[in-house]
Amino acid sequence: MHALIVVAHHDPRSLSHSLAKQVAEGLGPSHTFEIADLFAEAFDPCFNAADHAVHRRQVPPPADVLAEQARIDRADALVLVYPVYWWSFPALLKGWIDRVFANGWAFDFNLEANRMEKQLGRLRVHLLGVAGADAGTYERHGYAAAMKTQIDHGIFDYCGARVLSSSLLPDAESQDPEPHLRTARALGRDLFTCPGAIEAAQPASDRQAAPVA
């Protein structure tokens, strides 16, 4: 089985990059992976007029968006590794979502019929956020719940994808990173054995169609 590991951090020496590598190493020789380094690859995260035309189904997606969609289509699991900026994704990763998870591919909204069909029912998602603050801060102010509502439900459930794990690694700037690296390696090791992952191994023709919202 194949995993697409997306990392959104400008510094290749960052903890985010180290975590992505640990997820890949944890997969072992039985599975394949690709690491998508959005900064090194100079992905343009700016949603522009051309992207809006894609959303309106007036033009096909541009080549860079099609390439990212093809990466996801090849994957049995999508892993996002990212630092938390202002209690959310960094702009680079949010822009990747904005442009790549487009109408007609991630979902299909028919304005005339007032119907929205979720298109990513086959996709299994794992989230690994790197947090500078401690866990108590996230719970005390409701940031953890807000992020889960915004990201897990608001993005992935909207498209029909299932978030099988959503981990927030606290105190990343002040504590020994080794426990977080072990968490990432364990995620890779268990990526295709956790509950729900087996469904992603089915051929596309055998998967149940995505539900209509």
Rank of each mutant, 00 (worst) to 15 (best):
W96H: 02
A102S: 15
W96K: 02
W86Y: 14
F101P: 00
N110V: 06
Y82C: 08
N110R: 06
F101L: 03
L92M: 15
L80Y: 12
F107A: 04
F109K: 03
W86V: 11
L78I: 11
W105C: 03
F89I: 09
L93F: 14
L120R: 05
Y85D: 07
A113K: 11
K118Q: 11
W87M: 08
S88D: 11
L111S: 13
W87Y: 15
W87K: 03
L111V: 12
F107T: 07
N114M: 08
A91N: 12
L93D: 00
R115F: 03
S88P: 04
N114K: 10
Q119T: 05
L78D: 09
V100P: 00
F109S: 02
L111A: 13
A102R: 14
L120Y: 09
D108Q: 07
N114C: 03
R115Y: 01
A91Y: 14
N114H: 11
G104T: 13
K118I: 05
L120P: 13
E112N: 09
R115E: 11
Q119K: 15
R115K: 12
G95V: 02
A102F: 10
G104I: 13
L78K: 12
V81Y: 05
W87V: 12
K118N: 04
K118G: 04
Y85T: 10
E112H: 15
V100D: 02
A106P: 00
L111R: 09
R115W: 02
L78P: 11
A77F: 09
W96V: 01
A77Y: 08
D98N: 02
N110W: 02
W86C: 10
P83Q: 12
V81F: 08
Q119S: 12
K118F: 05
Q119N: 14
W87E: 03
V79Q: 10
K94P: 01
D108F: 12
F89Y: 15
D108V: 04
F89D: 01
Y82E: 03
E117A: 15
L80Q: 02
L80R: 04
N110M: 01
G95P: 07
F109Y: 15
R99H: 05
W86D: 07
F101A: 00
V84K: 06
L111G: 03
E117H: 14
F107V: 05
A113Y: 10
L92S: 07
E112L: 09
W87P: 01
K94M: 08
F107N: 02
E117Q: 15
V84D: 03
G95H: 06
A102T: 14
W87Q: 03
W87D: 06
G104R: 11
D98T: 01
W87L: 10
A102P: 06
V79L: 06
V81H: 08
A77C: 13
Q119D: 08
A113G: 12
V84Q: 06
D108I: 03
P83H: 14
E112S: 04
F101R: 00
Y82P: 10
V84W: 05
L93W: 14
F109H: 09
W86M: 13
L92G: 11
E117Y: 10
L80N: 07
S88L: 07
F89P: 02
A106N: 04
R99S: 02
V79K: 12
R115V: 14
A91V: 12
M116G: 08
F101D: 00
